[in-house]
Design a protein around this nucleic acid. Structure first.
Lengths: 200, 200
DNA sequence: ACCTGAACACCGTTCAAGT
DNA sequence: ACCTGAACACCGTTCAAGT
């Protein structure tokens, strides 16, 4: 006789992925403060000590979430980027994608930008950040070649562009600035970043 | 006979302020995750339930810390602002003050920008944010009057300037961008925000 | 290799009772 | 008005033991 399929086997089989999925859901619906390993274990129908086999501690799970977040963000930006567009439209597209991600994943973004990751994963994390910033870097480099962006250290120029987007995303994510207003004015924001605050 | 002065009286006398001071210290030295009401009570030499008289829950203490942080930030910016300077130097001064605050108070800034404050205090918090942003707003308004800043909604232009600074501060605070490099290139960053990324 | 169950040392919050 | 002490319902983490 085969064992009853309705009853959970002793080994879960895919606990790590299940925990991460469940954690993402909790993060989205109830915020990072509501994340508890014991609760995730309960939801997975597993003992409270089982998560310890897959994540050495709670921070390891948070790091894994952050890493997955960067992967998703990087892919979102890469998909959104249209290299054929004129500079301003291209940057606006990236900005819209980034702000959209920030709005849809506010709690995750906060976790991604928390400064308390294990040193072991911080290089993995740095690589993931680089991939996310990469879309901006490419845009700047392309435009610089065409003379559409000021000469100078491309890393610094990318930083200015990315900081402008990230600062806006942070203001939106924490409610300092209303979402709709920010989205409605995004093209103007991008225009001001490209053309500067001084009159021409 | 008077009671022994070496022994703590039943009433602490200034528990609320003591808890806040102790919390600020823990925040600075060990980060937000290490904050515990019970530990703060222990350090104050008081029972673990005593903090409950002064803060209805832990979030209330975090909110009080955030509020005090904004007060300090606002004052730092107001002190740093020199309205007599030329626009670019004036903005650079504000930027240096803000980034300096971010570097010296990374954990506090993270707490200040967390999006989970009680609705009761969120209007107080909004007022404190406005006061902090106020220095940037005044600078923009002054410069607009002199025609040194593009015409248009001053709130939006302030947002672009403040987002540029805050994004940089966030990158520094979480280690994405090294502190010294950011400080060394701050004048150039400000220049790029004012003059734009497009060639003139 | 993966999971359980018990144990340990913590939490935040509440509430009657003390001063 | 302010604080204590006990109680309650949670945590994260560890570790022998089970499958």
């Amino acid at each position: 006789m085969a064992p009853m399929p309705t009853q959970r086997p002793y080994h879960h089989g895919d606990l790590r992925a299940t925990l991460l999925k469940s954690a993402e859901h909790t993060l989205r619906t109830r915020g990072a403060a509501a994340l508890s390993l014991r609760e995730l274990a309960r939801e997975a129908g597993v003992s409270h000590a089982a998560p310890g086999r897959h994540f050495k501690d709670k921070q390891a799970l948070l790091d894994a979430l952050a890493l997955a977040g960067y992967e998703r963000l990087a892919q979102t930006l890469e998909t959104a980027d249209e290299p054929g567009l004129a500079l301003e439209q291209r940057l606006a597209g990236l900005a819209r994608a980034y702000i959209g991600f920030a709005v849809d994943n506010a709690a995750l973004l906060e976790l991604m930008f928390a400064r308390k990751h294990d040193p072991d994963v911080s290089e993995q994390l740095a690589a993931a950040v680089d991939r996310s910033v990469g879309s901006f870097t490419r845009l700047i480099a392309d435009a610089q070649e065409r003379g559409e962006i000021v000469a100078g250290d491309p890393e610094r120029i990318t930083l200015v562009a990315a900081a402008g987007m990230h600062g806006l995303a942070a203001f939106i994510a924490n409610g300092t600035f209303p979402v709709e207003e920010a989205l409605a004015g995004l093209d103007e924001h991008v225009h001001l970043v490209l053309h500067g605050l001084r009159p021409r």
